[in-house]
């Protein structure tokens, strides 16, 4: 049997960023259903316009959930203990969002290692739409 040596990140290391396919209206409808957040500014243009928006905007929580995808390949080694994001920009239909994470700090605590990541989501104009931190425990 082979032993999986797990992961070793160093401070400054970045996870491979992911450029997501353009946001679609169907995706927002699907997320509304899966999350139970049926606020119509995410699905119905007329409602978004009433709220002073040019069209529907993505749920901040959907962007946050997409950031967490960066860590899914590593869930066999550890888990996400803390995750914080600020929603600093709006995401519209057809926006292309890039998500990224890099190791800001690392601490060994007995058998466990705690990694503090800085995480971001930005659009094609390189405007941040969400920024935050995530702690991954291995």
């Amino acid at each position: 049997m082979t032993v999986d040596s797990g992961i070793q990140w160093r401070v400054g290391d970045a996870l491979e960023p992911i450029t997501l396919p353009p946001v679609t209206r169907l995706e927002l409808i699907q997320y509304a259903g899966a999350s139970g957040d049926f606020n119509p500014i995410h699905t119905i243009d007329a409602e978004a316009e009433k709220a002073g928006l040019p069209g529907v905007i993505a749920h901040g929580m959907l962007t946050m959930a997409k950031i967490s995808r960066l860590f899914s390949p590593y869930l066999k080694y550890g888990w996400v203990r803390d995750f914080y994001t600020r929603f600093v920009g709006k995401v519209f239909v057809d926006d292309v969002i890039m998500i990224g994470a890099s190791v800001a700090e690392k601490e060994e605590k007995g058998a466990e290692t705690v990694y503090w990541f800085e995480v971001i989501a930005q659009n094609r104009k390189e405007e941040h739409v969400a920024v935050g931190e995530l702690t991954f425990l291995v």
Binding site: H59, A65, S68, F83, Y84, T85, F87
Partner: peptide
């Protein structure tokens, strides 16, 4: 997934009313 608890029902605080629309989600922590 780490953000899954957003799907749960937490009940509501008796008497507390929030706007039906126009609330902005500023930040979130788990």
């Amino acid at each position: 997934p780490p953000t899954f608890p957003i799907t749960f029902r937490y009940g509501s605080i008796p008497g507390l009313q929030l706007p039906k629309s126009g609330l902005i989600h500023g930040s979130q922590r788990f």
